[in-house]
Design a protein around this nucleic acid. Structure first.
Lengths: 120, 120
DNA sequence: ATCACCTGTCAAAGATTCCTGACACATGTC
DNA sequence: GACATGTGTCAGGAATCTTTGACAGGTGAT
């Protein structure tokens, strides 16, 4: 039952994780979800933040694989999207960064528009 | 000789480290310095980047405590600023983030102008 | 129907970060 | 003195990220 995945993330992956976590709001969001999973609207009220904004931050975190969202149907039929933190584990040390930096392929993120322009 | 400093960085500290590392250029800079210490101008040529820009990135990294710079005088009298990576070690896990997030005092960075405006 | 919840997306404005081309200063060499 | 190489800083524009206020659609209850 010993599971220790060798800390050797790719440059793009590490980059996505670091930039996702390098923001006070996102850090608080993760912290709030560690306490207990929650759905968007409730979380927004809990940490005093607009829904559209929180929604965007959650997407960034989810894209980095730090949280996972599940669309569930409450007993009264309402559709709620619950989010909870994913069990991640990253080690930040000079060697790890050195290895990761070697595998950076620029355009790591980009939402979509780039895809089309890329095809030109 | 066992030295395992309990991974419990403050929110502001962790935030500074994460945002500093959350940038492809900075990641490469650290990687380059892991191989061998170097002075600004040479490093700039090595990784193909303007000096002013590299200078700025190095400051960001140094402010986060990830690299340290030393102004040395080469034998021929030239003043060179050598940079090398600091032996850092951060663990990124939900619990660590939860604890760190509790100690965020906003205005963690800010260069100076904010200071005056703060006093208004 | 109207209200109270939930979800999601957009466009436009604001605030930051990133980057570049000068500029200033110092020392050793031709 | 004119070069070459080092250091550092500044202003201004380009590129990104952050934030807000609509808007659209869905279900259950009054």
């Amino acid at each position: 039952m010993a599971e220790v995945p060798p800390p050797a993330p790719t440059g793009d992956e590490l980059l996505k994780v670091l930039s996702a976590l390098g923001n006070p709001h996102r850090l608080r969001i993760v912290a709030a979800l560690v306490e207990n999973r929650n759905y968007v609207s409730a979380l927004a009220r809990e940490i005093g933040m607009g829904r559209p904004l929180l929604h965007m931050h959650l997407q960034r975190l989810e894209a980095a694989g730090l949280v996972v969202g599940t669309l569930e149907l409450s007993e009264d039929g309402k559709a709620m999207k619950y989010y909870e933190v994913a069990p991640f584990f990253y080690e930040l040390t000079p060697p790890v960064i050195a290895r990761a930096a070697a595998t950076i392929t620029e355009n790591a993120d980009r939402t979509d528009r780039t895809a089309k322009e890329e095809a030109k």
